[in-house]
Amino acid sequence: MAHIIVVGNEKGGAGKSTVSMHVATALARMGRSVSTLDLDLRQKTLGRYISNRQAHLKEKGLELPSPSYIELPEIDEAALQPGENAYDHRLSAAVAQMEGDSDFILIDCPGSHTRLSQVAHSLADTLITPLNDSFVDFDLLANIGSDGETIKGPSIYSEMVWSARQLRAQAGLKPIDWVVLRNRLGAQNMVNKAKMEKAVSRLAKRIGFRVAPGFNERVIFRELFPRGLTLLDLKDVGVKSLNISNVAARQELRELIRSLNLPGITVDF
Rank of each mutant, 00 (worst) to 15 (best):
L80H: 07
A212C: 08
D147E: 02
V19W: 07
P175M: 01
G214Q: 04
H89K: 14
L46H: 05
I70D: 08
T45K: 05
D38L: 09
G186Q: 09
Q54D: 15
R250H: 12
G172P: 04
V34R: 05
P154R: 04
R182C: 02
M196Y: 00
E223S: 14
L173W: 02
H121L: 15
T36Y: 01
L131G: 01
Y69I: 13
R254H: 11
Q166T: 10
R227P: 00
K193H: 13
Q81L: 15
A212E: 08
L181F: 01
V211S: 05
F104W: 03
Q118F: 10
S33V: 12
L229V: 12
S33D: 12
V211K: 02
P67R: 08
S102G: 07
R182H: 02
D76K: 10
C109P: 07
M98E: 06
S92E: 13
K240W: 10
A124Y: 01
F209L: 03
V95R: 06
V211G: 07
R210L: 03
G148L: 06
I207A: 04
T36L: 01
T230I: 12
A248Y: 10
E252P: 08
L57P: 11
H56F: 15
D147L: 03
R115D: 06
D137F: 11
Y49A: 14
E159L: 15
S102R: 02
E223D: 14
G31D: 14
N243T: 09
G111W: 10
A86V: 09
L203I: 05
S241R: 15
S155K: 00
L260F: 10
Q54L: 13
I128G: 00
T25E: 09
L91K: 02
L37V: 07
A142G: 00
P82C: 08
A26H: 02
Q43G: 02
H22V: 09
V136K: 00
Q166C: 06
L127E: 02
I176A: 01
K235I: 12
Y69N: 09
V180M: 01
F221N: 04
P130M: 04
E197T: 11
L46A: 00
P65Y: 10
T36W: 06
P65K: 12
M1H: 11
A24V: 03
E255Q: 14
L232K: 10
K60I: 11
R48Y: 11
F269A: 05
F135N: 03
V211M: 05
N189A: 15
P65F: 11
P263R: 01
K198R: 15
S117F: 01
V119A: 10
